[in-house]
Design a protein around this nucleic acid. Structure first.
Lengths: 358, 358
DNA sequence: AGAGTTGTGTAGATCGCTCTACGTCCATCG
DNA sequence: CGATGGACGTAGAGCGATCTACACAACTCT
């Protein structure tokens, strides 16, 4: 294990050490056709002895970089780590490595993080950001294998993977309805926020919410927050808190709140906690079933869209694409309801009319 | 904005379009010396018109890839995103991009994630994993700018950045002592787990704990968990839960538990919640002050080591290194106590001797 | 005026790998 | 026995950038 400090060991060094050509070494490390057993053994030994590691950037120039890139819109939303975990597990035995490019705090940096990956010549990209124009993605998908998570529209040049958000929203609303709630408010992103178009998870959840509410003969009631308002990099938790605090403070009857994702739901729970309301007085349902939801102190009812499975599927789709599949695929996974303590049968507040201000 | 689908636009295309040499274009994009205003304008225009983006892998072959790599040991520990956030903010105005390589679920993959970054020819690496041998890092630091977070030992070939874990542990213990607690248990990682040597955060916290306990005339009492036991990728939360459940179930007197990090503390809180104990009966202090600690439903007392600041400092150190600084630096940041509801003055349990089993 | 400076641009080598094309050896076959 | 074809290796071009020279003006000094 002689390691020379100055310049690190290249394929040339290995070739010389093994007494063969560069091409031969290349074949061995790529497990390509045309290598005898004897040669494979010899080269492998040299590689080990010299501690050689092929440089991804050099490989990327002609062949592949053996790297898959994941773009995640926010490093704070605990849902994304689930996807990554699923992806890493799926990738464990493969020769591919995974790197993550987080989108910057300025949310308009939609494509930027994805470009970072493309510039790095990754062999394929999984992206989640909903704030990226469709055409832009089509363009990218034309040259790079691409899987978009959370796009309800199928595409020609890239694969899409999405949870059935209509069904998920229905699960949430029905759960609350079955508990006995009749005032069910949907907390979601402000219109104008690019996420909220109909093809995005939030947009579709809102749609599903509205649809089920009407089916149930209830009047939809939206509460919208704009996470961009906050320079507070918390994904809307504090906006949700403020908006819901006001709403709940005003309300005298039981209210159920269906938040478009757990981050928002946490803000809701904060307001509920500060107002000292019970789950019956203010029921909360989140979306994503992030790790923390299950904690007994949180006990947040949430819709699970199995992030780990999505991560694994995304990887599978991407590898298929890289392997050559031409036509695009649109996969949909089914969500599950996770009922917990934050939602309960409606319970009327004591008659002393309480009102507080933050 | 004519974008040719087939082969993407290279520096050669830009050069031809602008009627200059490749070298000239290269100078412009690197903002290098020897470009006239007139040329800069012309080239910039061509770049914009063609939608040219330099490929990081090609750049990396001779120059730099303008990429910094962050290795994080676990995608689940909510402390690390804080560091990333700080780093991204610090990097916002620079030409450098940030990518993340998460360590795999198998914890022995210490160096692997770091190697992934090194193989990608990043210009510098910030790594957090404590499960990497010192010599290995020295070797790496010899060839690549490297900042290690959470290493208490200074090094010759890389910079180190650490919070004062002795002081942090003292803050935690003193806080509990001042509340009136006398039985203060330290929940930390099992010996044998590589993290727990004296140079790692957990090792040093344990050391600090022991030291302060003795100063206060109290007997240290360790409770150790081994996160590797769990194939449960939860960073020890479930082990912590199990261990503490048993301890608390047995105890009749108030117990204070100082957990080595918030992830463990959440497990403790889970046990506390299930046993229905008050903060006075079982006080909990965590470490890292992750986002969730501050939530009123959690209200976890925790030691804050300002992850965002650490991220920003790490970036600064790395950029200094890249710029040429030769001798290594060892920075220490001071922790802060965040007292919240999970810790309270000891309160004796009601006399009916309760005992439950999971 | 000749010799330095600057300032600006280009040519061409080079980074470390992969890939195509081709050469060689050897066994098999008509 | 020469042709055929498969197995195994090698040579050398090429990927897209950067970087080191160096050329050529246009100025500025003696």
């Amino acid at each position: 294990m002689t390691t020379q400090a100055r310049r690190s060991v290249t394929i040339e060094d290995v070739a010389q050490h093994a007494g063969v050509s560069r091409a031969a070494v290349s074949k061995v490390i790529r497990d390509a056709y045309g290598v005898s057993d004897e040669m494979r053994v010899r080269v492998t030994a040299s590689i080990a002895e010299l501690g050689y590691r092929p440089r991804a950037s050099a490989r990327a120039m002609r062949g592949s970089s053996y790297t898959l890139g994941f773009e995640i819109p926010s490093i704070h939303n605990h849902f994304f780590p689930k996807i990554i975990t699923g992806a890493m597990t799926a990738l464990a035995e493969s020769r591919y490595q995974l790197i993550i490019a987080p989108a910057g705090p300025d949310h308009d940096q939609g494509p930027q993080a994805i470009e970072v990956l493309a510039d790095r010549q990754v062999d394929g990209i999984v992206a989640i950001s909903s704030r990226v124009p469709q055409e832009w993605l089509e363009e990218l998908g034309r040259t790079t294998p691409l899987v978009m998570i959370g796009r309800h529209h199928a595409s020609v040049h890239y694969d899409t993977l999405v949870a059935d958000d209509i069904a998920g929203a229905a699960l949430a609303v029905r759960h609350l309805y079955d508990l006995g709630h009749r005032r069910i408010v949907h907390l979601t992103l402000a219109e104008g926020v690019p996420d909220a178009t109909s093809s995005t998870p939030h947009g579709v959840r809102a749609l599903g919410y509205e649809r089920v509410m009407r089916e149930l003969g209830l009047e939809p009631e939206f509460l919208r927050v704009d996470p961009d308002d906050a320079r507070g990099r918390d994904g809307g938790e504090s906006q949700a808190y403020a908006a819901v605090f006001e709403l709940l403070d005003r309300a005298d009857e039981p209210v159920a709140i269906f938040a478009a994702h757990d981050e928002l739901a946490l803000g809701v729970l904060r307001a509920v906690a500060e107002l000292g309301l019970s789950a019956g007085q203010a029921s909360v349902v989140g979306y994503d079933d992030t790790d923390i939801a299950e904690h007994p102190r949180m006990s947040l009812t949430s819709v699970n869209q199995s992030g780990t499975r999505m991560g694994a599927i995304a990887v599978r789709l991407l590898l298929e694409r890289i392997a050559g599949r031409a036509q695009s695929v649109h996969e949909v996974v089914a969500p599950k309801m996770m009922a917990r303590g934050s939602s309960a049968a409606p319970e009327h507040r004591a008659h002393e009319r309480r009102r507080r201000t933050p």
